[in-house]
Nucleic acid binder design. Structure first.
Lengths: 162, 162
DNA sequence: TATTGTTATACTCTATAACTATA
DNA sequence: TATAGTTATAGAGTATAACAATA
């Protein structure tokens, strides 16, 4: 009796595994779980590795720049970097040009950890996408990049704060 | 100087937006955010809609079955259904065959809410994938389904509890 | 006056353990 | 004894507000 006699279009019955949000979320969770398991011997996590990767790619970024790239709040970044600094994986020092800012860099030990972890992360990704083949895996990557690059068509323009 | 003189392969420098985990996570977060924004006038969320969808697709499932499909803990499902029950969107009743189990069903109001919300959810998905075209959107969906269907090749077989 | 990092606080989601009632 | 639902509790991750130092 759904929508009978009204002008609203019928709702197609969808199984949960046909919903894009479900698919993206569970693919993400599954991959993250496998990555965390593979990184466990190194005592690090996929989340930490994400931060290390940003720091390694462009050394000398401020905390807020790292946080912005990863899409995490600057207050969350404090705790994350606190932990990595306690383990002597990264170091903070005030910028000489703007002493409000903390420049974040990998320590030598952090560089070593990052390279080992990144190698493992790549292996996990390959394993994760093995069943679909490298061609479709490449397409998947490019498609997701497109989705994230293009600002959502229906979204409001980024606010211009007065 | 990375890996110089050792037998470990060099670590390819990857920008964060080339990492599959990053792409999946942020695509998921972006889509969820847009969905939540679109559902806000209905007073519901993408998370609630996920539960409603499972209940709607196969009425009469137990709480644990709904929880298992969505991949959420059964203890989390209690709070989620509590809220939906307080809003008279779903109803729980003990199964006549096994009175330990709660059968979960949509109320008439819940059915109505679900259909409205699912329509909006579909529109958001279409908007979200508009830039890549329906062909690539279909491929994306099928690829993700493949990744989630195939048990990870390297993963240990599901544990056989003694 | 605005910005960076920080702390304190709260809220959500999740995970574990223990309890109850049923089987 | 095992299972379904529940409760209590603790742990992450995130978000907001306020503060100090600096610009």
């Amino acid at each position: 009796m759904s929508s009978a006699g009204s002008s609203t279009p019928p709702v197609p019955a969808r199984a949960h595994d046909q919903v894009l949000g479900y698919l993206l979320k569970h693919a993400y969770l599954e991959l993250e779980e496998q990555t965390d398991a593979a990184l466990e011997p190194l005592g690090t996590t996929a989340r930490d590795l994400g931060a290390l990767r940003v720091v390694a790619a462009a050394a000398g970024r401020s905390q807020q720049e790292v946080a912005a790239v990863l899409g995490v709040d600057r207050t969350s970044m404090v705790a994350l970097l606190d932990r990595l600094e306690r383990k002597a994986i990264i170091a903070r020092r005030p910028s000489t040009q703007d002493r409000r800012r903390n420049v974040v860099e990998l320590t030598p030990a952090g560089r070593e950890l990052f390279e080992q972890a990144e190698r493992i992360c790549l292996q996990v990704e390959e394993e994760f996408t093995r069943s679909i083949g490298s061609r479709r895996a490449g397409e998947l990557r490019r498609t997701l990049q497109s989705l994230l690059t293009v600002p959502a068509a229906g979204a409001a323009a980024p606010e211009q704060l007065p």
